[in-house]
Design a protein around this nucleic acid. Structure first.
Lengths: 195, 195, 195, 195
DNA sequence: TAGTAACCGAGACGGTACGTCACGTCTTATC
DNA sequence: GATAAGACGTGACGTACCGTCTCGGTTACTA
């Protein structure tokens, strides 16, 4: 009689989608991307393997869907009142992503795209970064409005420098990110951007 | 009295080591790390699979040995007479590594270490970056001698910013690295380092 | 209303079970037990190796199933009207098994059970002989009914003597079993059993 | 200068022949014929694998040599003063061979000859039984001299019956050989041979 | 409320690659 | 001259997942 209260599955994906995504991300965190298997996901999710293959053609596609759904990589855009404060907050968020137990495997998986044409993870990474960059625009818009931003500054370059430094330190060098690293990074690049 | 007839293999690794390493790197470039199989390497190298397993316990160990031997990732430390020139040269080298056909798969494989303990590739990446940083020291020593370097500057941070920006742009965003990017990157971080 | 369409595989074993069993027994006959390989069976049966391992955990288990299914070792219990005639028929059947091209390898394989605990072939041999002995009982029941059997005679011993003589001659001495051997064997043991 | 005091190796076989044979027989007893490996023998004997292959071309040949040298299968020909007593002694010896911990694996290995042409173990079995039969002749010669033996009796058949019964009981049925079995066997076949 | 379409579980399968074991051969010292 | 040392090709082992297929049953929307 009553309309169904916001049916959780509006026709997209299997009924057990949530369980599948959960299992996917948990196993990814536990075993890394290479150790993630569809069979294990199916078993953990209490679902038949065919069900997964009915909906996603590959491990990468499944992971992509899981990441999109689960919003593990979402960000809150900071608004601290100053460009420097905002950038430090962003940096710390990137740092948390790259080092966090739940997310570090995810984030490394994104980077393992082989560079071969047609790699789904590479596409996901591209989309993720584009989306993220779009969301970060307000930070720079506000800074410009406050007159904090040099006219010729390149926000994308600033962000790449910031995120890249954290990435290299944590993911490639495999070193701990010391407290104060975010501030140091931001202060290193701000002269190029700030009035 | 007579010198030994210069045995080509001084006791380390199989006779066909060169062929194996060649095949490993070629297949890695062609198919990416996930598509790299020991069986294919063996076949390409004209060697039996067991011979490979006799010497390296895993795909990662084999790749590690291949990279160390093949010096694919070596750098020439530039000496252009100015810090800016040296850093631009380094940046362009990083950029070539990350985008070059022969090396981009290698370099991405390094980053796919799962972050799990005991990952051989992660160890390799760590070693590689440590070694590379050591080799780059003269650039900063010379800059300091020339009085180009601010006293409190952090060379490691500068290098992480530079390499990270290239990495994010090419490997994560999967965008082309435009001409002039190296110079832009260096100019963005130099105010933090240069007198 | 209609009977189900008589599915050929009532739930036990792979679809190609017959082909697998055929290949198993043929290769066993050709190459002996030691030369029998699962891979060759799979190839001959036009089946993937994994399919065989899905159903039988070892070569011995596979062979066991093949023997049970194929009824290679079955006997027709003779009824010639006299104990002597029946025993000669049984002896000749044993002789045929031990020397026949199709069966001699099978029968030797049964005997190669290592005597180690848990040997599957040893278990199969045990079962086979127990079953066979049970089936031979009517011969002695009829002989007793005819008054041909001494009260204290031990049928099992008689059968062991008979089968053993054939076995030693054919399988261990590797000599031909001459015509008349069956009669000679039976006549040698009958005084111990017959009135 | 002094003649070596009975050199243990008169030019035939490697220096460590004894150790090799020991290891061979011990491993055969422990693991059965199928589980016997040349590599394990070499290791146990403290000898290089190539040394074994220099002297014996195959596992079967090695085993053959070990059995011949080690006299595991030797018999003492009994002389109890009566045919029945001698035959019972022989039967008990066969029984000990087939069931003894040290020898049962050996004796089963002999029977696992595939019946294929060129099987070395089959040849060994043939030789062993021929030799053994020759050695047992005195028992029958003495019985004949005592007038115990029927003129037309076939000693070979008698022995095959006896040995076969023990073999079937112990090796094929995998049953224990009860005490008194030897006497029962002999009494079952003696009417056919004894006056 | 019945029909129907989408979805799902169960199970089997061919296939690729894994990493391991033992075989038997070979070459190059060494004793 | 016999051995030791050690690398090698070869073949088979048994396992893990891959991605696909068929079949029969179950939801759940819809007519």
């Amino acid at each position: 009689m009553s309309a169904p209260p916001q049916p959780p599955r509006p026709g997209k994906g299997p009924r057990a989608a949530e369980a599948i995504f959960d299992a996917t991300l948990r196993l990814l965190a536990e075993r890394g991307y290479a150790g993630l298997t569809v069979e294990a996901v199916a078993q953990e999710a209490g679902v038949n393997k065919t069900t997964i293959y009915r909906w996603w053609p590959s491990k990468a596609a499944l992971l992509r869907a899981a990441l999109l759904r689960a919003r593990v990589l979402d960000i809150d855009i900071p608004d601290t009142g100053s460009l420097r404060g905002d950038l430090i907050a962003l940096t710390e968020h990137v740092s948390a992503l790259v080092t966090g137990v739940r997310t570090r495997a995810v984030v490394r998986a994104l980077a393992s795209g082989s560079g071969l044409a047609g790699d789904e993870l590479a596409a996901l990474a591209r989309d993720f970064f584009a989306d993220r960059f779009a969301r970060e625009q307000p930070v720079f818009a506000r800074a410009a409005a406050r007159g904090e931003l040099l006219p010729g500054a390149d926000p994308k370059l600033l962000l790449d420098l910031i995120a890249g430094a954290v990435w290299v330190r944590a993911a490639l060098r495999n070193e701990a990110v010391p407290p104060g690293f975010a501030a140091a990074v931001v202060d290193a690049v701000l002269p190029a951007g700030r009035t």
